[in-house]
Amino acid sequence: MLAEHYLTIKSAHVGLVMLSGSLFFLRGIAVLCGLRWAMHASVRYTSYLIDTGLLTAALMLLGILRLNPFTQPWLLVKLGLLVAYIVCGSYALKRAPTPVGKAVAFTAALACFVTIYLVARGAWGVRAW
């Protein structure tokens, strides 16, 4: 049964969060510094692989805990912030036409990431798992 692996899946989820956030941070700094490696295919595909694992672990946790993100306010907040993080991250790394736009989008994406973390940790009185 999947529930027997809860701690392993949760640990993988937390580890993948840290990997994903760290790689995004490094890529964002590199893009702002004009370094080409940040957008190299191997780096992008590594990011996709990490994020796919992260999403898979999150969905497994939702299934194990029988949580519906649309009935749990803290999960709904995290989901909305995740969408904002993805959009801001896309502008920070590629879509913003100017360096200032990339910097603003990068800052906004990092703010979303930190807020997602704080919500998950229950910083605003909302307890996550």
Score class of each variant (00 low, 15 high):
residue 19 L to G: 14
residue 58 A to I: 04
residue 46 T to Q: 04
residue 64 I to L: 07
residue 33 C to M: 15
residue 32 L to G: 03
residue 40 H to Y: 09
residue 22 S to E: 05
residue 63 G to Q: 10
residue 39 M to E: 11
residue 64 I to S: 06
residue 51 D to K: 08
residue 59 L to C: 08
residue 25 F to G: 11
residue 38 A to G: 02
residue 20 S to R: 01
residue 50 I to Y: 13
residue 42 S to N: 14
residue 46 T to F: 06
residue 54 L to E: 03
residue 39 M to W: 06
residue 55 L to A: 13
residue 23 L to Y: 07
residue 29 I to H: 10
residue 24 F to A: 05
residue 59 L to W: 09
residue 63 G to E: 12
residue 28 G to V: 00
residue 50 I to V: 15
residue 27 R to E: 01
residue 22 S to K: 09
residue 59 L to R: 01
residue 27 R to L: 00
residue 29 I to D: 05
residue 48 Y to D: 12
residue 47 S to T: 12
residue 51 D to H: 13
residue 19 L to E: 11
residue 18 M to D: 09
residue 25 F to D: 08
residue 16 L to T: 03
residue 22 S to W: 09
residue 15 G to H: 02
residue 52 T to D: 04
residue 31 V to L: 00
residue 64 I to D: 01
residue 31 V to T: 01
residue 28 G to C: 05
residue 50 I to P: 06
residue 64 I to R: 03
residue 55 L to F: 15
residue 27 R to T: 01
residue 59 L to D: 05
residue 56 T to A: 15
residue 22 S to P: 14
residue 29 I to L: 15
residue 23 L to Q: 03
residue 54 L to F: 11
residue 16 L to Y: 02
residue 40 H to N: 14
residue 43 V to T: 04
residue 34 G to Q: 02
residue 56 T to Y: 08
residue 20 S to M: 07
residue 47 S to R: 01
residue 36 R to G: 13
residue 49 L to G: 14
residue 52 T to G: 09
residue 43 V to D: 02
residue 57 A to N: 03
residue 49 L to K: 07
residue 34 G to C: 10
residue 17 V to R: 10
residue 15 G to Y: 00
residue 55 L to E: 08
residue 19 L to F: 15
residue 60 M to T: 10
residue 42 S to G: 13
residue 32 L to K: 03
residue 56 T to M: 11
residue 40 H to F: 11
residue 58 A to T: 03
residue 25 F to L: 15
residue 61 L to E: 06
residue 35 L to A: 11
residue 60 M to Q: 14
residue 28 G to D: 01
residue 26 L to G: 07
residue 24 F to R: 03
residue 44 R to G: 08
residue 31 V to P: 00
residue 27 R to A: 00
residue 59 L to I: 14
residue 36 R to N: 14
residue 18 M to C: 13
residue 22 S to R: 05
residue 16 L to K: 04
residue 41 A to F: 06
residue 60 M to I: 08
residue 44 R to I: 07
residue 38 A to E: 00
residue 15 G to N: 06
residue 22 S to Q: 11
residue 15 G to I: 00
residue 36 R to I: 12
residue 17 V to M: 11
residue 17 V to L: 13
residue 48 Y to N: 11
residue 22 S to A: 15
residue 63 G to I: 08
residue 15 G to D: 01
residue 59 L to H: 07
residue 33 C to S: 15
residue 45 Y to E: 09
residue 60 M to K: 07
residue 46 T to C: 14
residue 27 R to M: 00
residue 38 A to H: 02
residue 18 M to S: 12
residue 53 G to S: 04
residue 26 L to K: 12
residue 42 S to V: 15
residue 21 G to S: 15
residue 17 V to A: 10
residue 15 G to Q: 00
residue 47 S to C: 04
residue 32 L to F: 03
residue 17 V to N: 13
residue 34 G to L: 07
residue 62 L to R: 06
residue 45 Y to S: 13
residue 62 L to G: 13
residue 16 L to V: 04
residue 21 G to K: 03
residue 37 W to H: 03
residue 49 L to H: 09
residue 62 L to E: 07
residue 63 G to S: 10
residue 35 L to D: 06
residue 64 I to Q: 12
residue 42 S to F: 13
residue 54 L to H: 08
residue 30 A to C: 05
residue 55 L to Q: 10
residue 37 W to V: 00
residue 57 A to C: 10
residue 30 A to W: 00
residue 15 G to M: 04
residue 38 A to C: 05
residue 56 T to P: 09
